[in-house]
Design a protein around this nucleic acid. Structure first.
Lengths: 381, 381
DNA sequence: GGTAATAATTTCCTTCGTCAAGTATTGATT
DNA sequence: AATCAATACTTGACGAAGGAAATTATTACC
């Protein structure tokens, strides 16, 4: 919550709506939030006083008759800034975002090791560098995105295979080093939150984001809330079995989406198809783009697998829309057609009407996701 | 909502908690609902006055010290009765339940046709027969469970393939015939609600119920709420593709769970395995139980497919527990081991810890689900 | 200028829950 | 037996929060 003041529920609702759905008049907000316009007026006042919202000049007339023009409420995006950092196995990617989650500046830092102390030292330097752009005075929060099993409420990284971290009290340690209020979240969930608040997931109450890369993951919003899973597992689209006779997966399953369409699987199959055991993923992409049929078939099979996995999501939870993204999608031209075809075939009934957006998101976007989580922590927590 | 009075939010919460989690003292309720005990006292009072709750005699002492004994609040189960009817293609199954959803009596009625008028006439007779057991005076609500696409909020059956109904205003018509307040819900959702409020789903915030029969369906509770799906599709576990080279499904997909483990698919494969084109499902079950290996393999493959589908649910949404049920499970001894093995293999990480309950539920239980929806409508809507 | 229409604010009121104090009922201690 | 500590419940004053309706603000159109 805003540390400057304790806000009424209506204020939080107003803030969230203005933040995610752009400038809105008080009357429009009242309709959207199912509140009286009086409640909106009262809720908005402290936010305006604190400088988070401002009244825009009246807009052009609407409708046929006359009437006092609305004065829409808008977010003052530069009221406060937020640092977001995505921690990968070999790099820190950091951004500074404004309140509307627009990236203002970014910076990177290679990580020679994933040793916790060294990562934290680098993190401190990276944050310093980012804030030196003149953001320091108006920045109080830092969001961190880490792959693996993360406890958002305590800021504990329980287990991150990529980083080889176990039970790292990341929030506590990052707060000590940076002096900022820190939130820690799983990277896919962070990206999903960003898309939910500021991207294609705005205004819908169920929504899925699929990430394709080394692994294949999925963030799920159902009933307006991020799904976490009772046993800490959710969104493991990569380990849905879609081919009973497919390759064994490192998880112990068979024919998992990831065992067919994960980066490792693609490299393995491409090497076999080309008969060249030294082939890299980049080589495979280049060959496929150049029209190499056997290697093209590898990407086709991968696209089919991803499409089938996405169809499983659509059939089960029926999201209003689905975004497909991730680093692996730097080669998304190779995947996209097959993903769509396979999805259409395997989606049941009206589930096939679910819009699919297939587009790459850079690592900076992942860092923006981390920043978004800290924005959400300010506004709604 | 209770038509006798308009209750405060706390009253609804208290009622729901006592109903689903059994007798609880006010202090225990306050802890569970995150309310002050004063709020519980005030919320419970009108419910006691209306006769829905009662105070039990003090229970045995708890803890080491002394202290005033608690007077737990309990539901007066016979305060009101509820009719639930499951409408199948050839039969109406009706029950009368008390407030705790215990079945008090039941009755059936064969349907010669699925013509709407005739079904409604039969429904009227069935309800009359049920209420003549002395329940009439204290029964005001009827729940109907129908397979297919049902709009709960309007009581409209949009499309029910089994019944060949399209856009039937079922609530309206059933209310006219019975004089009761009617709720209409999809049958799988109704059964899921029953399990959520009165069965294994009590107290958990995410939960799945899988039904195995002619079709294979799934009801999903996430964040304490039944999932509906933005396009009206959700829980279609039967049409998840789990075998890229499997049989074509009537839905247009390939290797769907239902195309492998649905009743039709099992009969088809059993006939092929036995070389006897007149074989029935009952024959196949008998042969498999008698040790016929080829036919046993058909059931094994079906169990594998169901297990893989359930694993997909567990991997994606991570429910706290899963109940597997449905008519097809009258032969559940043939399915159970393979469902468990296949689930364990394909569930990712901690998802494999999700408890699976595999047990048949009779059609009467489906009717009880319908009654449960009307109980929920009384208490919480 | 007058009027209708729409937006925002203000005032007053209700609802609902908390807090703190008080009552009730028990076992243990003296 | 009297008292005390512990726990459960109730009561009444209070405050937060949102709604209803009257009021003010601002426009288009006559």
């Amino acid at each position: 919550m805003l540390h400057e003041a304790d806000l009424a529920p209506a204020a939080t609702a107003v803030f969230t709506a203005v933040l995610t759905e752009g400038p809105l008049s008080r009357v429009a907000l009242a309709r959207r939030l199912d509140l009286s316009s009086a409640a909106v007026t009262k809720g908005a006042r402290p936010l305006i006083e604190l400088g988070y919202l401002e009244e825009l000049a009246a807009t052009e007339r609407t409708g046929p008759g006359a009437g006092r023009p609305a004065s829409p409420l808008a977010v003052r995006a530069d009221r406060e800034f937020f640092v977001g950092v995505k921690i990968t196995g070999d790099e820190l990617i950091g951004v500074v975002c404004d309140l509307r989650a627009e990236i203002r500046t970014s910076a990177h830092r290679r990580l020679p090791t994933t040793d916790v102390d060294q990562v934290l030292t680098s993190l401190g330097e990276l944050v310093d560098e980012l804030l030196d752009g003149g953001y320091r005075a108006r920045t109080h929060r830092l969001g961190l995105a880490v792959s693996g099993d993360v406890d958002y409420s305590t800021g504990l990284v329980r287990y991150s295979p990529f980083l080889r971290w176990r039970d790292v009290r990341l929030r506590e340690r990052a707060e000590k080093i940076t002096g900022l209020t820190v939130t820690v979240e799983n990277d896919v969930k962070a990206l999903t939150t960003a898309e939910h608040w500021f991207g294609e997931g705005v205004g819908v109450e169920s929504f899925a984001l699929v990430t394709v890369g080394a692994g294949i993951g999925c963030g799920l919003v159902v009933g307006g809330r991020l799904v976490s899973g009772a046993h800490g597992v959710a969104g493991e689209i990569g380990h849905i079995g879609i081919d009973a006779n497919g390759p064994d997966c490192h998880c112990g399953g068979r024919g998992c989406v990831e065992a067919i369409a994960g980066a490792d699987a693609i490299v393995r199959e491409a090497r076999r198809a080309a008969g060249r055991p030294e082939l890299t993923l980049q080589d495979a992409v280049a060959l496929a783009r150049a029209g190499d049929a056997p290697i093209g078939a590898v990407f086709d099979r991968a696209g089919d697998a991803i499409g089938a996995g996405i169809a499983a999501v659509a059939n089960l939870v029926g999201p209003a829309r689905i975004v497909v993204s991730g680093e692996g999608l730097s080669a998304y031209d190779l995947f996209e057609p097959r993903i769509r075809v396979s999805f259409q075939r395997q989606a049941f009934g009206a589930a096939s009407e679910c819009p699919l957006s297939i587009r790459p998101l850079s690592f900076e976007q992942w860092a923006r996701g981390a920043a978004t989580v800290s924005i959400k922590a300010l506004v709604a927590a």
